[in-house]
């Protein structure tokens, strides 16, 4: 299957989305990511029972924090799909890419670059 995906995202592989923590998402933004999305198994199909539910909660927590500090909670999103759904994976990445482009760059990154340029 050769599917077209945007080339500007980096995949970080996890044994299970349940491994992800709020801090991982925040660090990505601190380091300049413009968006983060977490792709887990279908709800109810987690091999570790509730990993993807935990992931969803943590994504929601991260979104709340990002809203409060003015980075924007819409920059993080949780998706669920099964391992056979390559086209859907591609579609989600396109969707996310489009959304982030609408939102523009991560304001933290912008501020850091402005500071660097001024120096």
């Amino acid at each position: 299957m050769r599917l077209k995906c945007p080339a500007n995202f980096r995949i970080i592989r996890l044994p299970c989305t349940g491994k992800i923590d709020v801090i991982h998402i925040l660090r990505a933004f601190e380091k300049g990511a413009d968006g983060v999305y977490v792709v887990g198994c279908m709800e109810g199909d987690c091999h570790f029972k509730s990993g993807n539910f935990r992931a969803r909660k943590r994504v929601e927590q991260a979104a709340k924090i990002l809203d409060k500090i003015g980075v924007g909670g819409e920059r993080v999103k949780m998706y669920n799909l099964s391992s056979g759904e390559g086209p859907l994976f591609a579609q989600y990445s396109i969707e996310m890419d489009k959304k982030i482009r609408e939102l523009g760059p991560n304001p933290v990154k912008v501020a850091l670059q402005a500071k660097k340029n001024a120096a």
């Binding site: 709020v22 801090i23 925040l26 601190e30 924090i65 500090i69 003015g70 304001p107 501020a111 500071k115």
Partner: peptide, 19 residues
């Protein structure tokens, strides 16, 4: 420790953004 990390990261981002 976890809450310290998250809060520190959030505050750093907030203040960077605020210049």
């Amino acid at each position: 420790k976890k809450e310290v990390e998250v809060l520190a990261s959030a505050l750093r981002m907030h203040f960077i953004k605020a210049g």
